[in-house]
Amino acid sequence: MDVTRRRILQGLGGLLGSSLWPNLTMASTASQLSMFGQVPSAAKAQRLISAGAPADMLLLALAPERLLGLASFDLGGDYPWLSNKLTALPKLGRLAGRSSTLSLEQLLALKPDLIIDCGTVNDTFRSTAERIVAQTGIPYLLVSGKLADSAAQLRQTGAVLGADARAEQLAQIAEHILAEAAHFADARGRQLSFYAARGARGLETGVAGSLHTEAIELLGLRNVASAEHQRGLAPVSMEQLLLWQPDIIITQEPSTWQHIQTSPQWQGLKAVQQQQVLLLARFPFGWFDSPPGINRLLGIRRLQAYLDPSLQAGFKAEMQQFFAAFYHSELSDAHYQQLVEPQLVNA
C-alpha cells in the first residue's frame, strides 16, 4: 500500500484537526471573485444571502452560521443525514438565473450585509449583480464556479468572509480529490465511455463539456454525447444510443434507473446487459449537477470509488469526513449505507 493510500485510510479527524486528506496546498492562480458595490470587511459580513444553488453549496461549507437561508433548497424534508442547523435554514428563493424567485422587497426586508453568487461569470450575471446593487445598495460578490477551480473559490471566498482556516481545510480536500481524479484519468479513465441519462425515459443528456457532465469528464471518461457547437442538455434517440454503446450509464433519478432496467428498448445496450447502470440518487444535493457546485467534488470521488475497487474500503470514511467538513453533519454508518452502499460495489 503506497503512502497516499495509507493516509487516506487513517481515522476521521475534526473539522480543523487530523484529516484523511493529504496536505496538497497549491498557490491560487487567477482571481475567482468579481465584486460589485462596497464589499464589507469580514467582521461586518455577518448576514449573507445566497443568490443561487451553487452559492448555497459554497456558503453551507464556508459560513452556514451566517446564512439567512438557502436560495434553491428546502431542507425541511426527510434528510436525517444533515444536521439540524442545516435543515432549519429556510428556502428564500433565487436572485440569479433564468427567473428570480426572491423579490427585491423581500431581499431588503432581510437586511443582508452581502449577496454571494457562484457559477458562470458572464455578461448576464454581471448585469444581474450591477442591477441589484444599483436598486438595493447591497454589495454583491460573484464567484467563478468552475469545478477545477474549487480550491481557489474556497480560499478566496473564505478570505473575504474571514474564514481562512475553514477554507484552507476544504481547499485541501478539493485539491486532493481533483489530483486523484487527474491521476485516474491518465491511468484508466480514458479507456471508458459513459452516457448520463436524464428524463423519465433516459433520453436526455448533458453534452460533452457541459456543467452537467463536467465532474464525470474530470475522471477522464469519454462522454458519448459530443457535439462540436453544442453545450448544455440535448435529446438523444435510442437508435443513437445503440450506435454509441457506452461502457457505463449514469443517472441521478431513481425513476430513470428503473425505466432503463425494465424497458425492452434499453436491453440492446451492453452496459445494461452487464449491469453497468449506476444510480446516484440526490440527497438532496446532486452528485454531478443539481447544482453544479462544490457538491460535485464528492460525486467525483464516489464515481472513482465505483470504478476502482481499491478505493471502496476507504470511501465510507472519506464520505463521512466530507460531510463533516462541507455539510457540518455527522454521517452515521447507517445513513452512509442508505445513501451509497447498494450501488457502490462494482458488479
Rank of each mutant, 00 (worst) to 15 (best):
A148V: 08
A148D: 06
D149S: 06
D149F: 12
S150Y: 02
S150G: 02
S150I: 09
S150M: 03
A151W: 00
A151Q: 03
A152E: 07
Q153A: 04
Q153G: 06
Q153R: 11
R155C: 04
R155S: 01
R155V: 09
R155Y: 06
Q156M: 03
Q156L: 01
Q156K: 03
Q156T: 02
T157A: 06
T157K: 08
T157Y: 05
A159Y: 05
L161R: 11
L161A: 04
G162T: 02
G162M: 06
A163N: 10
A163E: 14
A163F: 04
D164W: 06
A165M: 05
A165I: 06
A165Q: 10
A165H: 10
A167G: 00
L170H: 05
L170Y: 04
Q172F: 02
Q172P: 06
I173H: 13
I173F: 07
A174S: 13
A174I: 04
E175C: 12
E175N: 14
E175K: 07
E175D: 14
E175W: 12
H176E: 09
H176M: 14
I177D: 03
I177R: 14
I177A: 07
L178G: 03
L178T: 01
L178H: 07
A179G: 08
A179N: 15
A179Q: 13
E180H: 13
E180N: 13
E180P: 02
E180K: 15
A181R: 09
A182G: 07
A182T: 11
H183K: 12
H183Q: 14
F184W: 11
F184N: 03
F184C: 09
A185R: 11
D186P: 00
D186I: 07
D186R: 15
D186L: 13
A187R: 14
G189A: 13
G189H: 07
G189I: 04
G189N: 08
R190L: 05
R190M: 06
Q191G: 11
L192C: 10
S193T: 15
F194Y: 15
Y195P: 02
Y195F: 13
Y195Q: 07
Y195L: 03
Y195M: 06
Y195S: 05
A196P: 09
A196F: 14
A196M: 13
A197F: 05
R198V: 01
R198K: 15
G199A: 08
G199I: 00
G199T: 00
A200T: 15
A200C: 05
R201E: 15
R201F: 14
R201S: 07
G202Y: 00
G202H: 01
L203W: 01
L203E: 02
L203T: 02
E204K: 06
T205A: 09
T205G: 01
T205D: 01
